[in-house]
């Protein structure tokens, strides 16, 4: 094997410093007593106290979690159906159209997705009176649509790797297609559904642009509140919030990795 001496380790180390230095500084300065985020003047938890007594941030966080939960769930159901349709049914009318429509959101700039969905909701309200106004419902519909594209990619790759003989065996033993799906296919592709759901949940929690277009007055998601705060300059309570989010994510990812390692590919 070829070793390139000092060059690769140094570049890799610098790369990881580049990736983590900003995150570390966010965490460190969240415990800073000073209002000027980057001037250290002593350890303090005051920004955490400020964070948890800010009804605007707490309300936005709760709204975002609800939206992400529902949108990821809808996206998982629709994305799984879409993946099944594309992998299992090789010939049907509109297959090319469906392939195009479900992969297009992956390359669509957020500003276009947001604008087009807003215009749709305005037109729908004018024509049918539904959805009345814009808020949580319209954000959920918008997020489900773009998360669905990601779920489809994840589930589709898992489905096309799947060993067809298992399903055929079940069919030969007399199981109907629906029973085969719930008893054989679904348990096997479940890990892909979980990662698709988690991906959708994260993307929905993270989205600022689409939500800004389709939300209405009084329904600001967490990214929207953060963005309006951050635009006016750095604010230490955002650092505290970031630290909490980083903590949750780090614990979650490490736990997922450990669980994944303990059962190496048990279902494949």
């Amino acid at each position: 094997m070829m070793r390139r001496g000092w060059f690769l380790p140094i570049v890799a180390a610098l790369g990881f410093v580049f990736l983590y230095a900003p995150i570390v500084s966010l965490v460190v300065f969240s415990f800073n007593e000073n209002r000027l985020v980057t001037v250290w003047s002593g350890f303090s938890l005051r920004w955490y106290t400020a964070l948890f007594s800010d009804p605007q941030i707490l309300g936005a966080a709760w709204l975002s979690l609800q939206i992400a939960f529902v949108a990821a769930s809808i996206a998982t159901v629709l994305g799984t159906l879409c993946a099944i349709a594309l992998v299992r049914f090789k010939r049907f009318r509109g297959r090319t159209a469906l392939t195009g429509m479900v992969s297009a959101p992956l390359v669509m700039p957020d500003v276009i997705t947001g604008l087009s969905l807003l215009l749709l909701f305005v037109a729908m309200e004018a024509a049918f009176g539904w959805p009345a106004g814009r808020g949580m419902l319209t954000i959920i519909l918008a997020h489900s649509t773009f998360c669905m594209a990601y779920v489809t990619v994840v589930v589709r790759s898992r489905l096309s790797d799947l060993d067809l003989s298992l399903e055929e065996a079940a069919q030969d033993l007399g199981a109907g297609p629906v029973r085969v799906f719930f008893d054989i296919t679904l348990p096997i592709i479940a890990p892909a559904l979980v990662s698709g759901w988690l991906l959708g949940f994260t993307l929905s929690l993270d989205d600022l642009v689409i939500a800004s277009f389709v939300s209405g007055p009084g329904s600001s998601t967490l990214p929207m509140v953060i963005f309006s705060k951050v635009r006016l300059g750095v604010s230490p309570d955002v650092n505290a919030l970031a630290t909490i989010i980083i903590g949750i994510v780090a614990v979650g990812v490490v736990a997922a990795t450990l669980i994944g390692r303990r059962r190496p590919a048990s279902s494949s």
Partner: peptide
């Protein structure tokens, strides 16, 4: 790991 944390907050970190 950084991908799973908020994109907005990571951009914000660079302001500081």
């Amino acid at each position: 790991l950084p991908f799973w944390t908020s994109f907005l907050l990571r951009v914000y970190a660079w302001i500081g």
